[in-house]
Amino acid sequence: MNNKTPTSAYLNSIENRLNEFFIMIAGLWTFSVQFFRYVFVPPYEVYEIRKHMNELGIKTLPIVSVTGFIIGLVLAMQTQPVLARFGAEAYLPGSVGISIVRELGPVITALIFAGRVSSGIGAELGSMRVTEQIDAMEVSAVDPFKFLVVTRIFACTFILPILTVYVIFIALAGAYIAVVLVQNMTIEYYTNAVLYSVEFGDAIPGVAKTFVFGYIVGLVGSYKGYTATNGTEGVGRASTTAVVVSSLMILIFDMILVKITLWLWPTF
């Protein structure tokens, strides 16, 4: 009830936010369940999935390239003096390589992907919702969830790992540039040093978790867009909250997944 005292108004707004939060959790869960129910049922809409993967790749490639390169470069620049203090410059390729492969490459790519893609999906599906395009699809007896949502989540899930692998290579190249600037190191030595210290046990979990991140981006973007209300204002809200929610979820799941991998494959 709407009492006029400031505290109760405050409590009310907290209550509303909590409500919204739990509604969203429930919604994301339902969407997830529906996704797995539909994804194996024909028709597979291969054409749509390919189209989305192309679009997503082209849309994010420039920005992840630049970011990946700079992150690698800066990481090496920052790490170099620290290692030099211990006279351990020889470990530079290895330590930078491991950071990039295990953590920075996957998470940075995922966060950029979230910023670019989940907002895009949120806006796209949101405007389809408020202009009745989703309704039109539904009355033409085509399941819009399958055609619009499943294809997008699927495309996100499989394009992000590919992007991540690419970003890892770009970042390693950036790191090499930073290394060469301050010390003599041939590309062969660098490559060997990276390959020597980065193991499959680093690369597999690092890339594998991006399937989860890609799924999160597709899921949150679609959910926010698909359930948009209130006209164009709602579309704007769908696209911004999609970024916030998917970025946060990526970080939270990263924590969980890192814990799980460390527990399954202890590193030395």
């Binding site: 389809m128 202009t131 009745e132 395009q133 309704d135 039109a136 539904e138 009355v139 033409s140 007896a141």
Partner: peptide, 20 residues
């Protein structure tokens, strides 16, 4: 329901063409 919908045409007030 979908089988029935295939027999029904619906013209939306806003036309609702697929933008993409």
């Amino acid at each position: 329901l979908n089988n029935l919908r295939k027999q029904i045409g619906f013209l939306f007030q806003s036309a609702a063409l697929y933008d993409s």
